[in-house]
Amino acid sequence: MTTQSTQSVPTGIVLNIQRYCSHDGPGIRTTVFLKGCSLRCKWCGNPESINQKPELGYDPKLCVGKNKCGLCMQPPFPQGAFYTMNGPDDTIHVNWDLAVQCSEETVALCPTKALYMYGTRMTVDKVLDEVEKDSSFYRSSGGGMTVSGGECMLQPEFTAALLDGAHKRGFNTAIETACNVPWRFIEQVLPHVDTMLHDHKLSIPERHKKWTGVDNTRILDNFKRAYETFPDIDFIARTPLIPGVNADEEHIRAVLAFIRPHKNVIDYELLPYHRFGLGKYEFLGRIYELNDYKSPSPELVQGLQAIIDEAFGRTKTTAAAS
């Protein structure tokens, strides 16, 4: 994996550190997004997190064009990586097949920052120093640090060190994971976790494979083993809700049947699918495969949420809705 250990200081590839998050665990949190994922969910809203290595991004809105700049059309940028169409329009276009050869040093030459790299290697302390900036919010809200991805457990040594360091600094810890990793990765990380948010994407193995790239046999085994091995962790199940894929009662009931026997699974959350990630596919020169899918209707989400509420013994407050 990409975790490196130099003089016993592990480093990892960090995509972003997002402050003031309120949906990634209890309280106000800082979420550390790591790079690299072991699934290829067709609805992925964070395509820049999939590849484990730092990779090129291009925001055409920041580019001033060939006539005013054109630096990327000359060495040391790879030949043919950037071009313009014929005619008066001098907008720079990216040949993504050739642009992947751009080094980080070369990308840094772009004066307007239209070219940039997704992902940077960071030490545990550097990440935690950033996280510590909001420590007062954590104390007042019961929040802390969440490590997300990509798949945070693809960098198990780094993630474990990060979580351990956070605990030592007095922060509550959480992770977001799909658990498509060997158990040896999970048992490295979970001893340092207070809350684990985990995805139940699809219930049927062959459908899980169709939409994410692998079936869910190992994932479900990992979930069950985690529930049983780490009774003190608060587990929160989640489902990204996509109409036509998994936004149906059968899936919700299958997940409930899986999690309800385990008392440390304290909640099951629905994440209505959105298309916010679409633009980032363009920035990466990739095609979004779920382009024609829409977000679930509020009625559909409410109906499915009611099933969950009932299973968890929660009374629906109809007055609040009216």
Binding site: N16, Q18, C21, N46, E48, D59, K113, S148, H274, K280
Partner: peptide, 11 residues
């Protein structure tokens, strides 16, 4: 630019 807002909650 989406550069400064990479998380799904921030786009």
């Amino acid at each position: 630019s989406l550069k400064a807002s990479l998380s799904p909650l921030a786009t």
